[in-house]
Structures are given as C-alpha cells and as structure tokens.
Design a binder for these strands. Sequence first.
DNA 1: GACAGGTATCTGGTATACCAGATACCAAGC
DNA 2: GCTTGGTATCTGGTATACCAGATACCTGTC
Lengths: 240, 240
Amino acid sequence: MRADPAETTRGIRLQPLALSPTLKDHIHDALRTAIMAMDIYAEGADLRLDERDLAAQLGVSRTPLREALARLQADGFVDIVPRRGVFVRRKSLSEVLEMVILWAALESMAARLATERASDADLRALRDFAQRAGAGAGLADYSDANIAFHQRILALSHCTLLARTADDMFVHMHAVRRRAMGEGDRLHRSRTEHLEIVDALQARDAARAERLVREHTLRLHDHIRHSWPDPDRQPTHKGA
Amino acid sequence: MRADPAETTRGIRLQPLALSPTLKDHIHDALRTAIMAMDIYAEGADLRLDERDLAAQLGVSRTPLREALARLQADGFVDIVPRRGVFVRRKSLSEVLEMVILWAALESMAARLATERASDADLRALRDFAQRAGAGAGLADYSDANIAFHQRILALSHCTLLARTADDMFVHMHAVRRRAMGEGDRLHRSRTEHLEIVDALQARDAARAERLVREHTLRLHDHIRHSWPDPDRQPTHKGA
DNA sequence: GACAGGTATCTGGTATACCAGATACCAAGC
DNA sequence: GCTTGGTATCTGGTATACCAGATACCTGTC
C-alpha cells in the first residue's frame, strides 16, 4: 500500500485530468457527429465511407478508425460489408417506429419512477422548463426543446440505464427528425401535453404519469407513420 | 440492370450461404460466451484479459481481436484501460437493479403490444409453454425457462427492437443469475404469475397484461436487492 | 533499514504492409 | 451484337512491427 500522492504533496493540488487519450473515442465521436450532420435521406446522397479516405482526412491510420467504425456498426449507425464498403445506415420507417415504441417504453417507466424519486424542486424546474419551451419558435428549436423535456423526465427517474438507453435512441431520432417531424400543429398540443405530464408527476400519480407519457409518445408514433414521405423505401447498399 | 442469376440458372437453386466471414464477429461471440461462462464474482477471479494471450489462444492476430474487444466494451462487458489492461466488468448491485427496471419497461410495453398483435395460436402456445415450464426442476433449467418465457412475450410484441434490447440485457443477467437468483420459493409463484400474464394476454387486456408483467419483473427487482450477497461491493481494476 | 530514483518489462495504442474477395471493365468468341 | 470469361483494381480483413505510458522491481543513498 503506497500513500496517496495527494497527501505527500504540499503546496499544490491538481486534478487528475481524465481526458480520454485514445484516438478511437475521438474518432467515434467525430464520425457520429459527422453522420448526424449528413442529410442521409437526400436523393443522391453517397452513403459510402472510404476507410482510407477518412483516415487521411482525420490524419490517423486505419487501425483506430476501424475500431471506431466497428463501434458505430454496433451502435447501428453504419453497415460494414466485407470487401464492399462501409455505408451509413438509413433507418426504415419500421425501424423508426420501433424506436419510438422503445422510447415510449423507457420514458413511461421513467415517469413512473419519477413520481417516487424526483424532488419537488426538480418537478418545479421541469414545469418552468415546459412553460418556457416553444418560445423559440423554429422547428429545430422546438425539436430540441421537446427532446430536452423528455430527457429531463428520464433523468428524474434516477435510473441512468433508462436514460442512457434512451439517449442512444434520441441520437438516431435526430438524424430522422428533419424527415419525420415537421408539423407546427403538434407544437401547441405538445406543450399542453407536457404540462399535463408535469401535473401528474407533481400529483405523484404514477399510473397517470405513465399513461400520459406513453400516449404522448405514441401520438408521435402515429404522426410519423402517417407523414413518412416515401412509404416503404427500404434502402440497400446498391442503389435501388 | 443485370438479370438475377437465379433466373438464368436452370436446374439448380442454392441458398446464398450467409455465414459471417469475419473473424471479428466470431471472436466477439467466443469472448462473450467465455465471459458468460466465467464466474466473475468469485473471490480471487482474475478479471484480466491479455490481448496477446487471447490472440494466441484463438490463433488470430491482435487486430480483429481488438475490434471484438472494442465491441465488448461498447456492450458493457469489459473495461479497456489504456496501458493497463482489459478487464471483465463486474456489475454492481445498482447496475443489476437498473437492468431489471429496463427489463420491466421493455417487457411491459411488449405485453401491451402483444395483446394487439399476437395471434390466438401464439398465445395458446405460450400457455402450453408456461404450463410445461418448471418441470425440469434444476435452478439453471428454471432460470432458462423463465427467461425463455419472457423472451417469448417480447417476440410476440413483433417489435424486434424491444426484443433485441431486452436480449442484450438478458445476456448480462445471465452472468449475474447464479449470484442473484437462487430461491426455489420463487419458482412456484413465478409459474402462477406467468399463467396470470397469459390470461391477461388472451383476454386482450392491455392494461392488465402490462401491469402484471411489470409487477412480476419488479418483484425480481426487490428479490435481488434483498438477496445480493456482498452489499455495495463496487469492483475496481486495482484489487480493493 | 527505509526511501527515492532509475530501469527493465509488460501492456495496450498506432501505423503499416500484405491478403483475398468483389466489381467493373474489356476483349475474345459465338 | 450479345454473351462470357479474364483481369485490373478497389475494398475491407488480417498480420506484424513499433511506440509510449504504466508497473514493479532493483539498487544506491541517506
């Protein structure tokens, strides 16, 4: 047992600077961000990612890049086809709908937990947030605020696994939202429903909170199903 | 546009034999299986995995092995610490409890969907299965049959994302069950509750099915919380 | 004898070279 | 002119070599 260095040092005290030193992680983040920024649903979008090209752009070798790509594949962002290429994966309508169902499952449970675990102060803050939201107007603003509201509920469940699982899914939704969400009508109703959810949470009514969250999210499910632009276009790697 | 090869071939018709040719996938499976077989909660268990050693054992180079390890890290099975080593990750009590909560969230939603989507024949088969279960006696048999029952419900939701997410979690639970599950008492009550769940599904009662599944799974949650052997042992890589 | 500093060595991180399957193009034969 | 087989080339898959941080051990000094 060695004495802790901090105890033997006299006049200076430093943080352990825990930035991830591995390229793999940085590359993973960079690629995920880049993919989210791509308009992968555009007509002639090239979904192809060239390993050597990416490595050259990032200034790294292929090895850490490939580990990042492997992780993106596990995350469901890309398909890696041996001797064919790496392709950004487009979500089909059914996949998006399933994500929303997953979302509803996670968040309705989170709402249930939040009625037991969230503090009164947290719920008041949530109410404030829900009332302020939507003031920004723009669609992107609305979408961001909307997701932020739901993430707050997830956080109030104090179940990090629920929140993390939902976060992974929100990232996927982000790429889709410009394609699937677009009605201004939903904005106002959404805000009303958010406030009703907060009502249920503050009333500590687990069953009602769960139900309202579920119904709210499943309404998005139906909305997407009906407004999905090009029905049943299941993208492949080929071309058509 | 080239004609489909199958149309031009006359007398013979072959399956496209789609076995994954990549070592990475095989290694990933092999390691996951090996980790699940390990008794990672034993006292002096060496959680250390040596890349070079594993590569030698598997007869492959480090490169595909590392990609598999990166994926296992993303899956939450191992921690990779730069210049320190790869360590099998032990789940803490709170992590296990959160997994059970996630499970409850997923499966209660699945039950709800199943009341709408499952066929009568499927539900009859599920009832048969629930009635046969437990006959095998052994704890491992019970645990396997128990998980199989729940996986069937997930499958009946016809939401593959729900089922897949739950599957990932069941794999983690597998490593834990010998440590957390062990009461024979729960066996009989469990079987009764399973049959009640099937009742609700066959009655197409979404609310009741959802509630029964949730309560059933959260009972396991409480059971684990109370029977967890060594409270609050948060394993680290060091030693203690 | 206890401790600081040096150093051998072990580990994962990265870069590079080479391999093999898959395509697409092209030319020879029908 | 169409088909068919060969082949150049592109792509990811794999193996290997080397790099740098982290440990643990050893040794010289106080």
